[in-house]
């Protein structure tokens, strides 16, 4: 690896807040020596153990497998026990701030109330629906292909990184979000399960289900286990069509709009899809999301205007192809 051997002296900033005692959150700075193998969790431990014992965060396994330690660094979702610190320092010019996954849900420092995450998770029947024999003498057979079809959706560690990075969810609290939808896929595709239809119906509902995903790929980038929830969301779309569950509604029109957009620009024109599926009036309903996405650089403010064809074509085409590739290949 490319790291040099010395340690680096840096000032790390941390978001601090205690719902019990603080009126407003504040940022505190800590001088730390960072070594080449240090992980973000090592930095947090050092802040707690050497500087201020009241600094609080969740952690347990330190093997990147329990999902407790998801936080954000300069807005970027990371799993603290898996994320190399120097890598981040390089990325952000030695200026990093440790933040909770969602500031509006913070209870104390890095610790947030994940109630909404677990509630969404619970909604999709997150278990194999089957009669569990109590003393089975045989296992259920499952082919290697059927196992592979899980596409690692079973590796989700419920860290919430994708959930708290999803702009659709931020704008629409009813949306199930990428983690719950990944779980819906995980159980629906399992050959032992008998509730796929129910889950597909739930996840096809407007406002709640897959159709409210705006395909921004934030979740794919946020996931420390490379699970690629958007790929599973796309699979759920397809399964809904296969099962004849997808009705002709705003949402399916959205899908058609997606294809239309791709054909027209070789590009996903977010605004065009909304216009196509909901009409110009419909666009006003989405202004809040649109504003957020504009801030994130996902759409441009002239996007919705009928005569302004501002969608870049050739320049971003290669990137799109890359994204499509990401969403299609089964990463390790």
């Amino acid at each position: 690896m490319k790291f040099n051997n010395e340690t680096r002296k840096v000032t790390i900033k941390a978001f601090r807040f205690n719902a019990e005692t603080d009126y407003l959150p504040y940022i505190k700075q800590y001088e730390l020596e960072v070594g080449k193998d240090d992980l973000v969790l090592d930095l947090m431990n050092r802040i707690k153990w050497e500087h201020d014992g009241s600094f609080s965060y969740r952690r347990s396994c330190r093997h990147g497998i329990c999902g407790a330690c998801g936080i954000k660094v300069n807005g970027k979702p990371v799993l603290a026990c898996k994320q190399n610190a120097i890598e981040l320092l390089d990325m952000f010019d030695n200026d990093i701030t440790l933040e909770p996954q969602s500031k509006k849900r913070v209870i104390k420092d890095m610790i947030i109330d994940k109630k909404d995450f677990w509630e969404k998770h619970a909604k999709v029947k997150p278990y194999v629906v089957a009669n569990v024999e109590s003393h089975p003498t045989k296992e259920t057979k499952q082919s290697i292909e059927a196992f592979d079809a899980l596409l690692n959706s079973d590796l989700c560690i419920q860290c919430g990184n994708c959930h708290y990075a999803c702009p659709s969810l931020e704008a629409n609290p009813d949306f199930l979000g990428p983690a719950a939808l990944n779980a819906a896929y995980r159980f629906s595709i399992d050959t032992r399960d008998n509730a796929s239809e129910e889950r597909l119906k739930l996840t096809s509902k407007p406002n709640i289900g897959v159709w409210d995903c705006v395909k921004c790929f934030e979740c794919a980038q946020a996931c420390p286990k490379d699970i690629n929830p958007i790929e599973k969301i796309t699979k759920l779309h397809n399964m809904q069509f296969e099962y004849g569950i997808a009705e002709r509604n705003i949402a399916t029109k959205h899908a058609e709009g997606f294809v239309r957009s791709m054909k027209k620009h070789g590009f996903l024109d977010e605004a065009d899809i909304v216009v196509y599926s909901e009409g110009y009036l419909g666009m006003y309903k989405h202004l809040k999301t649109a504003y957020k996405m504009m801030k994130a650089g996902k759409i441009h403010f002239t996007d919705g205007l009928p005569f302004v064809d501002n969608v870049p074509k050739s320049k971003n085409l290669s990137e799109i192809q890359k994204l499509i590739k990401i969403s299609q290949t089964n990463k390790l």
């Binding site: 089957a130 109590s134 089975p136 003498t137 296992e139 196992f147 899980l150 399992d190 032992r192």
Partner: peptide, 15 residues
Amino acid sequence: ETIRWAEHMGAAFSR
């Protein structure tokens, strides 16, 4: 029987 019980519960074992 215990492993198979886990399998019936939905554990995603390699095959």
